[in-house]
Design a protein around this nucleic acid. Sequence first.
DNA 1: CTGATCGTTCAGAACTTTCTAAACGTACGC
DNA 2: GCGTACGTTTAGAAAGTTCTGAACGATCAG
Lengths: 160, 160
Amino acid sequence: MPGPTAKELEFIDRFGLCFEKLGGTRTMGRIYAWLMICGAQQQSLTELAAALGVSKASISTVIRPMEEAGLALRLPAPGRQHSYRVAPGGVTRMLQVQFARMRLGAEVAEFGLSVLGKDRAAQRERLAEFRDFCEFTADEVGQELLTRWEQYRAKKRRKR
Amino acid sequence: MPGPTAKELEFIDRFGLCFEKLGGTRTMGRIYAWLMICGAQQQSLTELAAALGVSKASISTVIRPMEEAGLALRLPAPGRQHSYRVAPGGVTRMLQVQFARMRLGAEVAEFGLSVLGKDRAAQRERLAEFRDFCEFTADEVGQELLTRWEQYRAKKRRKR
DNA sequence: CTGATCGTTCAGAACTTTCTAAACGTACGC
DNA sequence: GCGTACGTTTAGAAAGTTCTGAACGATCAG
């Protein structure tokens, strides 16, 4: 099982930084990058640690959130070790999770409205709009996004 | 210019935490919350600092990104001080900025493809899909989101 | 049963981010 | 001009995050 080449490692690191900018952690990005480009279909935790030059502890702690976010897949282990690979449609899932978090915003806004007196119309207006927007993204966009992405991909595929 | 009441402060803090979860900083959220609910139409930097119990330096450094993200508006100052208020459609803008960042992901993926040999079809497939998804969100979703949000809001308004 | 291999957990180290206080530059009122 | 009020910048403190090494529990081969 060969580790990444120098060029591949540069890609891995750039991907890690990018992932950081988008709200994840660097290591999560690096793992995801390596899983995308490595020769093998899947990688064990120990292999990941070796390939990325990172402690097993790091991988272990970071990969759980990745599973929950729908980015990585842990396969029923052949042998006793766990195998990880990129989940199909992983990034899509990630965005959906992000959108779902907007519900929290709606809740907080609701609380704010309960705090604010009935007389403060202008402020209530602002808060209500914020709440609606959070609801909108949480409820509508998540699903809509998926179907539109399928369309987009299909169109792109047809061109080839 | 009264500061926030105890209840209002709780809202402000909860909003700050929520903002943190969604990728911003706590202080940004607290500022935004206070701008939404404070009695005055706008607040100077000094007023913000006093109301939130935070140093002026903090506000000053944090509010610039907020302006750039399209969250806060700096008004042509009456007197010599600057006045801030929530930008109309602020959160929408913020999401759009977030989406625009996906372009970086597309670039990195493109670089990855240039690194990967032509023979590694499976890996290239994964990378290409990632790139396409980044492009899709950056190009299409940002605009689409806006129009759909307008529709949603209009519908919501009609109900009242 | 014994030794080897693997993933997990925990305490502490290294690093980053965020905040503050103090010094500074500028504009205004007098 | 001189003092005052305002926002900005910078260096350093405080807090939080992420990583590592070591100890541990579990599983399998022999």
